[in-house]
Computed example of a mutant assay.
Amino acid sequence: MILSTIIQEAGYGHDDLILQGISFEVGKGELVGLIGPNGAGKSTTIKTLLGLMKHVKGTVEMSSYAYIPERPIFYERMTMREHIDFLYTTMGGEHAAFEEKVKNLVSFFRLTHVLHHYPDQFSKGMQQKMMLILAFLKEPDLYIIDEPFMGLDPTAVKKLLGLLEKERERGAGVLMSTHILDTAERICDRFVLVAEGKMIVEGDLEDIRRKSGLPDGTLFDCFDALTEEGEKDGLADFFAPIQG
C-alpha cells in the first residue's frame, strides 16, 4: 500500500477533537475519493496525514507524496520559474529531462507567457495550475489533492484528470478530497465518506450502495441516506468495515 492510516482521534488538543474513527488505504494506481460536505473533516484528515495536527492518536504510513492544497501556497517575491528551480534543487536528477518536463507541463497548462512572473499576480485558476505543475514535476508515489477542481475551468479540469490517469498508469496512487460527488462517482475507484469528523463508510460504489440500501443509488443519494441514518443512530453502526 502507498498510504495506510488509522486515525483513532485527531484535533488541536485532547479537549478539541475534530476527527474520530477514520481509517483507509490507497494502493498503487488507485484513486480514492475523500468525500463529504464542507466542514466534514476532509481537510483536517489531510492535515493529519501530513503531520500538521497537534494531537493525533493513530498511525500513518505513506510513500513519497506531493500535496496540492485547496488554497495555492507560494513564496513571495519568487517567480513561477524560481519556484520550479527551487523544486529541482530538492529533487536532483538529470537536468535535461527535468527541463523537458517543465516545458511540456507549462505549455500543457498554457502558462508559458507567465513563467517569469510572480504568482501573486496570477488568477486563482492560474495559481492552482502552478501547484499542479510543481506536483507533477515531482512524480511522487502518492498525490494528496484537496478540492482540486476549485478555481479550474472545465478545460483545466479535463487536463488534470488526464494527467492523473497517466500517473496512475505509472503506479502512483491518488487521495482526492472533494465535495463534488457527481465527478467523484465518475472517476474514483473507492470512496471514504466522512461527516462531522467521523467516517461513515469506506468502499467502492457497490459497497456503498449495499450499505445504504440503495442498489441503484447515486453516490449523492447514498451519502444522503447514510448521513440521515447516522444522525439517528449516532453514526455508531457505520464504523464497522464492510464485508465483501
Rank of each mutant, 00 (worst) to 15 (best):
L160W: 00
G173I: 03
Y12V: 12
I187R: 09
I133A: 07
F108Q: 08
F109N: 04
A10C: 11
I242L: 03
T112H: 09
S107I: 09
I84H: 07
I133T: 09
M131D: 01
I35Y: 07
D146L: 03
I180S: 04
L19C: 02
V106D: 00
T178D: 01
E228A: 15
H117N: 12
L132A: 04
M62E: 05
H95I: 15
M199L: 11
K166Q: 13
F74E: 02
E185W: 04
R190F: 05
T48L: 11
E76W: 12
S212R: 04
Y75E: 14
R170A: 13
I180W: 07
D224V: 14
M126Y: 06
F86D: 13
G92F: 12
I73W: 15
K158E: 13
M126G: 04
D120L: 05
E100I: 08
T48W: 07
I208M: 01
Y67A: 01
G93I: 08
F86E: 12
P154S: 06
H14P: 15
F136S: 14
F108S: 02
G171D: 05
E147V: 02
Y12W: 03
H116A: 12
K198P: 06
V26G: 03
D233R: 14
S63P: 07
E169D: 08
H83R: 04
G93P: 01
P241L: 12
M150I: 14
I68C: 03
V192E: 00
G173W: 06
